[in-house]
Amino acid sequence: MQDSPIGIFDSGYGGLTVFRSIAEQLPEYNYIYLGDNARSPYGDHSFDTIYRYTLECVEWLFAKGCKLVILACNTASAKALRTIQQKDLPTKYPDRRVLGVIRPTAEVIGQYTSTNRVGVMGTRGTVNSQSYLLEINKLFPEITVYQQSCPMWVPLIENNEHLQAGADFFVKEYCNALLQQAGDIDCVLLACTHYPLLLPKLKTVFPDYITILSQGEIVAKSLVDYLIRHPEMETQLGKGGKKAFYTSGDAHAFDEHASNFFGAELKSDQM
Results as ranks from 00 to 15, higher is better:
41 P>T: 12
261 F>G: 05
98 V>N: 04
37 N>C: 13
225 D>P: 01
71 L>E: 08
122 G>P: 03
145 V>T: 05
17 T>E: 06
94 P>Q: 09
157 I>L: 05
211 T>W: 01
5 P>W: 10
28 E>N: 14
248 S>L: 01
32 I>H: 07
139 L>N: 07
229 R>K: 13
30 N>W: 07
114 S>R: 13
254 F>K: 02
48 D>T: 14
72 A>S: 14
7 G>L: 10
150 C>Y: 08
155 P>C: 10
172 K>H: 11
254 F>L: 06
182 A>T: 04
121 M>D: 02
63 A>D: 15
105 T>D: 05
37 N>F: 00
77 S>N: 03
58 V>G: 08
38 A>R: 12
183 G>Q: 09
55 L>I: 07
206 F>H: 03
91 T>D: 09
231 P>Q: 03
271 M>T: 14
221 K>L: 14
75 T>R: 01
79 K>D: 08
218 I>C: 00
3 D>H: 14
131 S>C: 09
114 S>N: 12
243 K>S: 15
88 D>L: 07
112 Y>A: 06
102 I>T: 04
151 P>C: 08
143 I>D: 04
185 I>H: 02
251 A>E: 11
117 R>T: 11
177 A>R: 13
20 R>W: 09
11 S>P: 07
206 F>D: 02
78 A>D: 01
263 G>S: 07
39 R>Y: 00
143 I>L: 05
178 L>H: 03
217 E>I: 13
265 E>P: 00
229 R>G: 00
120 V>P: 01
101 V>E: 04
98 V>R: 02
29 Y>H: 08
111 Q>P: 03
32 I>G: 03
181 Q>A: 13
42 Y>C: 11
77 S>M: 03
46 S>F: 07
88 D>V: 14
109 I>R: 00
115 T>P: 06
124 R>P: 10
100 G>V: 07
176 N>M: 13
42 Y>G: 11
246 Y>I: 08
69 V>G: 10
237 L>S: 11
160 N>S: 14
203 K>G: 00
141 P>Y: 08
72 A>I: 12
117 R>G: 06
